[in-house]
Design a protein around this nucleic acid. Structure first.
Length: 676
DNA sequence: CACTCAGACT
């Protein structure tokens, strides 16, 4: 084969590949007696164009005459297929890069830019810095793209001073470099500097304007953000998305929706994600799920980000069926379960009461971060599996993950829920000395809860007085609840006094004190509390319970007759009442009569919301399937007793999540062993 | 240049 023949074949391979005839190209390639690096590279390039990563890599590995271009084609091919946005692939890719350096090939600027971009994406601080040193050593003549990549890398890993240094050393700064700098400044809250850079720029593109929109909305200045949006001469879809996100973050859903509805043909999947996420952030979980229906109706392809937001909505709602549907959707559509999506799944399963599935996802995740560990430990804690939570904590330490503050909240919470008093005390004392985590007020809060609930009220009070923080309403509230459980009115009154000094507008405090008096039959004091509550004009958060039936979440508030099956539910509640009576149950009428809880204000047939939800569940959910109820407040003693009885009388498993933890009612007993 | 995950008490 002459050199001329080889060149002709190479060109032919390239042409065939470009037109999609990859088989023919391969045939020609295989038939060549002699091949040069050009032949190999063209063939690899063909496979990448067809999206066939495996074949491309297979050929690359067997290429005996690798040159600089070979590496370029490989790396470029990977990146164009979005292959490098996956952390596992990135690790593989880094070892590939090292191999290339070992074989003495000098990377090109474009390859280096790609790697630096990846380092920014994965916050691979060490590698990024090492690359910067090498680039400096080789003296790459200040390629503007590469330098901007470095600037972006430092901005993303939070090293603003290095970002600034890179920027200042750039001999010529194009609009992209300036944009990166604006973004870096705004991420660090240096809005003034970003603003003056913006004003000094002679050339601006849409990205420049968009950066400023994000900059102002991140600072909470939504009006200026809107002003920039309106002033921008080149609005693209990113401008609209950034503005919608700004309104969502500011809690102004009305304006966000207005833009969302008016964006027109430009609307893309990110627009949908932004709006769905916005609903979730504003706690409009049902609307988030509903918007997803519209997204599907318009045949917009959901992404991993969509799934994360939807799962978060399911977690809050306790919508297990919907959550499981999303999980199977993810599998069916081969979406990538990375740490973020994986953690969203774990969190959803934990909060929907299916800890076994949460553990399943957890163990299948190859890469786990501190979020995943925190979710699973907190999940175990909420279900009362204190010892398992402690085991997972130790496994985490063994795997070399450093604990953080959130981690200890979960751990101490686990001890508290399971009554593991000495363990809780031990971990609390080890936080600083063994694990180097400074205890915050939230950890003291956990300890006050742990001590108080176990009846060590004075120790709890001592801890409050000795802690290096000013006690907040949460800490006092926790102690007050313990006073209620252990019927210590004297301390309860003192604590309430402190609470009212701190926050006169929290109606919950009056309710608590009132319940404390009611449990002791001090009705005069109960009346006094009620007057105080009315005079102060505050309202307590209304109790709200939900139950999921056929992928639809039904919400119930006491006394709300808006549900279409209201009368049937009411009749069923009366029937439940009769059956309970037959079983020997007697309502705690004293406390019910005098309770000033909002939920009890209605007439003859009034029940706490969780009872209505369970009644509806009993009516609508087929036998054999458990009833899952979510309540926004803590359940009361009376309802807890009723749930236990219902589980026995109707032979049903009831899984209820309240504000604090899970209760699994089965055969007349609860998983919390009445310690909650 | 835009969109994603966790926590004490009520």
């Amino acid at each position: 084969m002459s050199q001329k023949d080889i060149v002709a074949c190479n060109v032919m391979i390239s042409v065939l590949g470009k037109n999609g005839f990859v088989e023919d190209a391969r045939g020609l390639f295989d038939s060549m007696v002699e091949k040069d690096s050009y032949s190999w590279n063209s063939m690899v390039s063909c496979y990448f164009k067809m999206g066939d990563v495996e074949s491309a890599r297979f050929l690359f590995d067997r290429n005996p005459v690798k040159n600089e271009v070979s590496w370029n084609v490989l790396i470029d091919g990977y990146s164009k297929l979005g292959y490098l946005s996956n952390a596992d692939n990135f690790r593989d890719f880094v070892s590939l890069y090292n191999e290339m350096r070992w074989s003495g090939v000098c990377p090109s600027e474009s390859v280096l830019s790609l790697i630096v971009q990846c380092c920014a994406g994965f916050c691979a601080t060490g590698l990024g810095k090492a690359l910067h040193c090498e680039i400096f050593k080789w003296n790459f003549g200040y390629d503007v793209v590469l330098q901007t990549g470095l600037l972006d890398f430092y901005a993303k890993v939070g090293d603003l001073s290095s970002a600034k240094r890179v920027y200042d050393e750039m001999p010529c700064k194009d609009v992209v470099a300036n944009n990166a700098m604006i973004s870096a400044l705004s991420k660090n809250g240096l809005i003034k500097e970003a603003q003056s850079l913006f004003e000094s720029m002679t050339e601006k593109n849409s990205a420049t304007w968009n950066s400023m929109i994000t900059c102002y909305s991140k600072m909470g200045d939504i009006h200026t953000a809107r002003f920039i949006f309106d002033s921008s001469p080149s609005k693209d879809v990113v401008s609209w998305n950034a503005m919608i996100d700004g309104y969502c973050k500011a809690g102004q859903l009305y304006y966000a929706e207005e833009l969302f509805n008016n964006i027109g043909y430009m609307r893309n999947s990110v627009t949908w994600n932004t709006m769905i996420t916005g609903f979730v952030q504003c706690k409009e979980f049902q609307r988030a799920l509903h918007l997803f229906d519209n997204m599907q109706a318009e045949r917009v392809k959901p992404t991993e980000v969509t799934m994360v937001s939807l799962l978060s909505a399911c977690a809050h709602l306790g919508a297990l069926d919907m959550g499981e549907w999303i999980h199977s959707y993810i599998k069916k559509n081969k979406l990538k379960i990375d740490v973020i999506l994986g953690n969203a799944l774990i969190d959803m399963y934990c909060k929907c009461g299916k800890i076994s599935s949460a553990l399943d996802v957890f163990h299948k995740l190859q890469v786990k971060n501190i979020y995943c560990w925190n979710s699973i430990i907190m999940g175990l804690a909420m279900h009362g599996y204190g010892n398992e939570a402690i085991n997972y904590f130790h496994n985490m330490i063994k795997e070399g993950v450093h604990p953080d503050g959130v981690n200890f909240v979960g751990l101490l919470c686990a001890c508290s829920h399971s009554g593991l008093i000495s363990e809780g005390k031990m971990y609390f004392s080890q936080m600083q000395s063994v694990y180097g985590v400074e205890p915050g007020i939230e950890h003291y809060g956990c300890m006050v809860d742990l001590l108080g609930r176990s009846g060590q009220l004075l120790e709890a009070l001592e801890l409050i007085n000795s802690m290096p923080f000013k006690a907040n309403a949460v800490v006092w509230g926790s102690l007050l609840r313990s006073c209620h459980i252990h019927k210590d009115t004297k301390l309860g009154e003192q604590v309430t006094q402190r609470l009212l000094e701190l926050d006169q507008h929290d109606g919950g405090n009056y309710v608590f004190l009132s319940n404390l008096y009611a449990s002791l039959g001090r009705w005069k004091d109960v009346d006094k509390c009620r007057k105080l509550l009315i005079e102060s004009g505050v309202r307590k958060e209304p109790g709200l319970s939900s139950v999921e039936v056929d992928n639809v979440v039904h919400e119930f508030v006491a006394g709300d007759s808006s549900h279409p099956q209201f009368s049937q539910i009411n009749a069923f509640l009366v029937d439940i009442g009769k059956k309970l009576k037959d079983a020997g149950y007697e309502a705690d009428t004293g406390s019910v009569l005098h309770d000033i809880d909002d939920e009890d204000k209605e007439g003859s047939v009034s029940y706490h919301s969780e009872r209505i939800a369970v009644a509806f569940g009993l009516m609508s959910i087929p036998l054999g399937k458990e009833i899952r109820v979510v309540k926004n407040l803590r359940t009361c003693d009376d309802c807890h007793t009723v749930m236990k009885l219902i589980s026995r009388i109707y032979n049903r498993e009831i899984i209820m999540r309240d504000r604090n933890r899970f209760h699994h009612f089965k055969d007349g007993i609860c998983s919390c062993k009445d310690y909650w």
